[in-house]
Write a protein that binds this DNA or RNA. Structure first.
Lengths: 346, 346
DNA sequence: TCAATCCGTGTTAGCGCTATCATTAGCAGG
DNA sequence: CCTGCTAATGATAGCGCTAACACGGATTGA
């Protein structure tokens, strides 16, 4: 037992490492080492320490440790919405990968708003995360500056940003949607409608609409009919309403593509309520390959975008950068797979 | 400028509060006060400080602050799954409420396992959260001991635990399911089937099955037919398979109740694939009032359980306990509303 | 046999903040 | 003019941990 550790006493507060050290008759460094598990502490000492920890009900205080070690063990992630299962799949992928290394996720959702994202980034940087994962490539200038200043690895996901901050794990939403249009056009569909959000806020949604229109143009098909509805999160109900609008404006539409499976499902239900047969009377396709696409009746054609894998890859990339910060392949852009899943609805 | 702050210099690392203080020609205490916003700092000083902060790109380090102030600003929450929109609604409710007070959520999911919960609780307690929100009332002994030792407010949610740790915001899953059975029995249904998980892991699922069976018994109806399937998370696909099993074993079943809307939806789709009309040939009801229940065709009868509200209330309760730890009504159990939403499927 | 090495452990010195107390200046009231 | 107050600021001392180095004793190799 050393002087420093013995100086303070356990006075009804939560026990500290010094309390454990005193109880076990060792220095607090040995306790710290024993808890790190990979350090060299003799078996006998280790056992005495763990006995003391158990008796006192001691729990390590990481915030004190990280102040000293300069490693907080945090990784921050911001997704648009936590209620959208595509994004929560990504969050799960991140967590699963982080857990292996003992890193902890600090998760927040920005409700598709860059302004909110900026606030969240600041709040998270105050916790000194060792890396940060963002959704999309649109950020406020101040957010970019803060991230640059923080000098931590950043991974942008779910998109291919025009001006990447650092690392990227994503796919082109425009290309993915084009691929869907081309696949459907190959099946003979010619009169396409598109249902998606209006606002600038949902960048990925906008990219998909752009991909839709450019594919239509490239294929020389009749102009795509576009119905827009409110702000994200885009709900099933909104899909139903938009479908009603499509059917009223352009009754001869052959296939309707929706910005996500959720709205596609709503759209399909609306058709069924109107006595229309999907896909005979009208075909419908979605995006995101949500569970519902594989289970609805009829099953929905969709685009699979490996949301869970995006999370895993982003976390992996981040971890490897954290562990060896000056590796060469830092700025590499990782493209994740996109794949059209043709099902009964088209 | 004081001696202490001037002693250290900015050497390429992230700027510290001392750097800001030096830059603004004040002591770091003034910077700290200015950032707290509610302290007394003259307007002129405050402006100089914020100018320095801006110029240096300084971001407050909360982990250092919390070591000193003994307030981490964290609240921990553990939900069974982050991919289930019922639980992510609760998480959203918690976040929304915490944000008002500047508290930050540390979220994790235990995959319906108490053992994993125990590990997560330990990991989170290492961050010294000021309170913790759990799902359900089943915890390992060690988890209970750790929580007791931590001496922080605990809120158990989504259930009425037999032996509450501290505070409770939830409802009786058994009662909620009984209510659904009684509502359907009142409409004339007599031959009930129930579809739910098998394992002990999903306590809430088990409670619902118990509620189902006791209501059937209390009403003197023919014995309920129970089909069990694998481990949670219960998917749509599993609901479809279970429905197939119900139809094969007991073709004269009048109504099938599912442990959640997700499996109910899967079950309903299976019926449609078999050419059965819901509700004419067989009625189906779910639980949880997910978005899909209101949007499917036909729309699903379900039990609404105010998931978002549970999160908000739990967070509110926690915050008020954190702010005044020795209030009288600490141990009060808050019952949230349950409500049967009758729709087209029954 | 002795230097070189390694293992297990302890001592010291902070990490970057904030609680607390001390100090100064300014000002009102007697 | 002094006392007593308040407002604004500074100095000091940690919070609980870990990095870095120190050190004694055991072990190794030449």
């Amino acid at each position: 037992m050393n002087k420093t550790d013995a100086a303070k006493s356990n006075d009804g507060q939560m026990p500290t490492m010094a309390d454990v050290a005193r109880h076990a008759g060792v220095s607090s460094m040995s306790v710290s080492r024993a808890l790190k598990n990979n350090q060299l502490v003799s078996k006998a000492t280790r056992e005495r320490i763990f006995k003391a920890i158990d008796e006192l009900g001691y729990v390590l205080d990481l915030s004190a440790g990280s102040l000293s070690s300069k490693r907080t063990g945090f990784v921050a992630a911001i997704v648009p919405s936590i209620n959208n299962s595509n994004f929560s799949d990504t969050a799960r992928g991140i967590t699963d990968e982080l857990e292996k290394t003992g890193l902890q996720l600090l998760l927040a959702y920005n409700e598709y708003s860059s302004e909110r994202e900026e606030k969240l980034i600041e709040a998270m940087l105050r916790r000194r995360p060792e890396g940060i994962i963002l959704t999309g490539g649109i950020h406020t200038d101040r957010a970019r500056r803060m991230l640059e200043n923080a000098a931590i690895p950043v991974v942008e996901t779910w998109d291919i940003p025009a001006k990447p901050i650092d690392q990227v794990v994503g796919f082109s939403n425009a290309d993915a949607m084009s691929l869907l249009v081309r696949t459907l056009a190959a099946k003979g569909y010619r009169r396409f409608a598109y249902v998606g959000g209006t606002t600038e806020r949902d960048t990925r949604g906008n990219q998909r609409r752009i991909g839709f229109q450019s594919a239509i143009a490239a294929l020389g098909l009749p102009e795509g009919r576009v119905v827009s509805f409110g702000v994200p999160p885009i709900s099933m109900e909104q899909g139903a309403q938009a479908m009603a609008s499509v059917l009223e404006q352009w009754p001869d539409t052959q296939v309707t593509i929706c910005v996500s499976d959720l709205s596609a499902f709503g759209a399909m239900m609306e058709c069924q309520r109107r006595g229309l047969n999907v896909p005979k009377d009208i075909a419908i396709a979605g995006f995101g390959n949500y569970e519902i696409a594989a289970c609805s009746h009829p099953r929905l054609t969709s685009v699979d975008i490996e949301c869970y894998e995006i999370g895993k890859l982003a976390a992996k990339k981040l971890i490897s950068t954290i562990q060896s910060p000056d590796d060469a392949d830092r700025r590499e852009i990782i493209l994740t797979n996109i794949r059209v899943v043709e099902r009964e609805s088209t």
